[in-house]
């Protein structure tokens, strides 16, 4: 059987694309409201901290952010190629490592809360 690393890259990519489509627009709306001075009640420290304290909250936050990061890394890799950067192995290495490192930062932050 031919071995390929594609499913490993592709599954989180497809999952992340769906997560981004469903969740990121409304999250941007929330932070944009905060930016414009109408901080939603749910973005107060108490509410955010309480959400990130429970196990389900941690799982949701990590799932959404880590999958979105991976999907974005994969899409940026393709974007680099399409704009003429032919060093694909370099772009893939840098972007995937960045996504993994950022996911690790999220995991550590959540464990600290």
């Amino acid at each position: 059987m031919a071995k390929s690393n594609k499913p490993v890259v592709w599954f989180p990519f497809a999952a992340g694309g769906t997560v981004i489509a469903f969740f990121i627009p409304v999250i941007v709306v929330l932070t944009l409201m905060a930016a414009l001075g109408h901080v939603p009640a749910g973005l107060s420290y108490e509410r955010m901290h309480a959400f990130a304290t429970c196990g389900l909250g941690k799982l949701v936050i990590f799932g959404v952010v880590a999958l979105s990061l991976w999907s974005s890394a994969h899409r940026l890799r393709c974007t680099c190629y399409d704009f003429g950067l032919r060093a694909d192995t370099l772009a893939a290495t840098v972007l995937y490592i960045a996504a993994l490192a950022a996911s690790l930062v999220v995991a550590l932050a959540l464990l600290k809360i």
Partner: peptide, 9 residues
């Protein structure tokens, strides 16, 4: 978002 979560922690 990663920065935000880090700030929350």
């Amino acid at each position: 978002l990663v920065v935000g979560l880090q700030r929350l922690a």
